[in-house]
């Protein structure tokens, strides 16, 4: 089993953190993982993306050309990455911030009002956690509990208050479907 995931959005939406949390969670579940951030000058342009590969066998290439799963947090990223998704792939997108509709009919599409849900918890910026919760539920590739453990490693300097809010966002995503 190999799942190749691309997470994409604006800088500040926790794109890189989402990828790293997925990689940690994969590692905690004894999978082979790689994480690769969008590169160099691209990072300064305000958009960010990263590739994560989670696999039961050693990961060949960390570069994901055609992902199995897309987590799309903003409009430009939808336009850019939707065509690259594998046939029968899974597209999760942030319905709160993306007004366009995905165009493809050969993929599974799940709109998630991620920012709206995060705002209900009092913090828009944890929309990424909501998305990871949805991903865990929909694909079953990672346990909710492992994601909770992983976010605590990623945000090890955060307050307990913040960490439990992140947990709640993961849970809300997990129970969204």
């Amino acid at each position: 089993m190999t799942k190749e995931v691309i997470v994409a959005g604006f800088g500040g939406q926790g794109i890189v953190s989402s990828g790293i949390i997925l990689a940690y969670a994969g590692m905690f579940e004894d999978r082979h993982v790689t994480f690769f951030p969008s590169y160099g000058a691209e990072m300064r342009g305000g958009t960010a993306n990263c590739s994560v590969v989670i696999s039961s066998s050693p990961v060949a290439s960390p570069i994901v050309a055609e992902p199995d799963v897309l987590i799309i947090m903003n409009e430009p990223s939808l336009l850019r990455f939707e065509p690259r998704l594998k046939p029968n792939g899974l597209l999760l997108y942030n319905k709160t911030l993306i007004k366009s509709e995905p165009k493809r009919s050969d993929i599974t599409i799940i709109p998630v009002p991620a920012n709206a849900i995060a705002e209900e918890l009092g913090q828009g910026r944890i929309a990424n956690m909501v998305m990871l919760g949805v991903l865990a539920k929909k694909t079953g590739i990672l346990q909710l509990a492992t994601l909770k453990k992983a976010q605590r490693i990623r945000y090890k300097k955060a307050s307990e208050e913040q960490l439990s809010l992140n947990d709640q966002a993961l849970e809300r995503g997990y129970s969204f479907l």
Partner: peptide
Amino acid sequence: DGLLGQMMEP
């Protein structure tokens, strides 16, 4: 190269 350097792996 930069790809190997910027990649995260266990």
